[in-house]
C-alpha cells in the first residue's frame, strides 16, 4: 500500500467514524429529505420551512464530518511511494553507477577454441613449411 493509499484509507475510516455521530435515524431522515427535495415529482409548496431547516441542520452536521476527514489544505501533496517492496529483482532503485551497455550483444566466449584453432594451426604449419 502506498502512503497516499494509506492516507485515503485513514480519511475514509475517520469519516465513517465521524458519520456515526449522524445517527442512523438522522442519516435516514437526511436521505429522505434529500430525495424529497430532488425528486422530479416534488412541489415547492410541499417543502415546509421547518423541514428545510431540519435538512440544513443535518447537512451542516454531515459537512462538518466531511471537513474533519479532509486533508489539511496547507499540507504538501504527498508523492506516491513505491508500489512494491524494494529489494526484489528488477525493482531496485536505479543506482547512480549503472553497469552495462544494453546496446551491444557480445559473442559467447569459450575457454578453449576448437575448429578455428585447428584451422589456424594448420595455416601456421603450412606457412612454416
Amino acid at each position: 500500500m502506498t502512503k497516499q493509499q494509506l492516507l485515503e484509507t485513514i480519511r475514509r475510516v475517520i469519516k465513517q467514524e465521524l458519520n456515526e455521530a449522524l445517527t442512523p435515524e438522522e442519516q435516514k431522515e437526511l436521505e429522505e429529505l434529500e430525495y424529497e427535495f430532488t425528486s422530479d415529482v416534488r412541489h415547492d409548496s410541499a417543502i415546509s420551512p421547518s423541514l428545510y431547516k431540519r435538512y440544513k441542520e443535518l447537512k451542516a452536521k454531515e459537512a462538518k464530518t466531511d471537513e474533519a476527514a479532509a486533508p489539511a489544505p496547507s499540507k504538501p501533496k504527498e508523492k506516491p511511494g513505491p508500489v512494491v517492496a524494494p529489494g526484489k529483482p528488477g525493482e531496485k532503485q536505479k543506482p547512480r553507477r549503472p553497469l552495462g551497455n544494453p546496446s551491444v550483444k557480445p559473442a559467447p566466449k569459450a575457454t578453449m577454441s576448437e575448429a578455428e584453432m585447428l584451422a589456424k594451426i594448420v595455416k601456421r604449419f603450412k606457412s612454416k613449411k
Partner: peptide, 19 residues
C-alpha cells in the same frame, strides 16, 4: 580428445532492465 571447458554469454532482459 579436444574439450571445451565451458562457455558464457550475457543477455539483457529489456522488460526487467536486467543483465
Amino acid at each position: 580428445r579436444n574439450m571445451p571447458g565451458g562457455e558464457s554469454e550475457m543477455e539483457y532482459n529489456e522488460e526487467e532492465e536486467q543483465f
